[in-house]
Design a protein around this nucleic acid. Structure first.
Lengths: 121, 121
DNA sequence: CAGGATCCTAATCGATACTG
DNA sequence: CAGTATCGATTAGGATCCTG
């Protein structure tokens, strides 16, 4: 017989907001997309240029996901050839403090403790 | 010929701290592990109980990862049967503000916009 | 109780080619 | 330019069994 389980000292996040928000940031690229939209509206091709190693397919997927969840707005421009522009919604702007907090921790991480994988930016 | 690319108004996060920190929180369970360690040291079995749907294998993986990157400390207890306890390091505590910011956004998300997947808590 | 070994499924991503 | 379709590689995760 081992030790008895102690009661947790922290409450589970009600209705799982932690997971709900992490779902938004899931994947290698979603945080970068949001990061580069903080400066204002940005076209598809501009985002591809901002985030060089993202593929068109994944960028398209992330943009549609973020749009479906009300984080960004898509605007079709009446140009030739046609182009599209994406912009953070009011709700989407609320992600920025979270992103800032994450970046702030990131700057304190020791580089030698980083994983040996591709970086996402 | 379409529109010219506009210069991005935001700087890329230097040395990619955004991705470095997101790597720590990547996956469905790492944020939950950190969340439940904020109340103090916690044993392996207690964490399994805190996070009911995590498997022992994945919990073990996440704990080893977080330990390798200096976010948590592992302590072997001299009990019978032997048990192990995990605790946030000083560096690990710096993740908490980021987690709080994420949760804060999560509480504002519309539930109907959530994905149709398993929740991670 | 803690956690490694094995096997398998599902999700994510990159590359390439193609459409309106 | 702004995407979509298809394919294959990588990875996270679950289930089960097993050991100290």
């Amino acid at each position: 017989m081992g030790l008895p389980l102690r009661k947790s000292k922290v409450l589970p996040p009600p209705q799982c907001p932690l997971s709900m928000c992490m779902d938004l940031l899931r994947g290698a690229w979603a945080p970068n997309v949001i990061w580069y939209l903080r400066g204002g509206a940005r076209r598809f091709g501009e985002l591809r240029h901002d985030i060089p190693r993202i593929s068109a397919r994944v960028l398209s997927q992330r943009l549609r996901e973020l749009e479906a969840r009300g984080m960004i707005m898509r605007r079709l421009l009446d140009t030739s050839p046609p182009s599209a522009e994406y912009e953070l919604t009011e709700l989407g702007h609320e992600l920025l403090p979270a992103l800032d907090a994450i970046v702030k921790v990131g700057t304190k991480l020791r580089h030698d403790a980083a994983p040996k994988r591709r970086l996402a930016a």
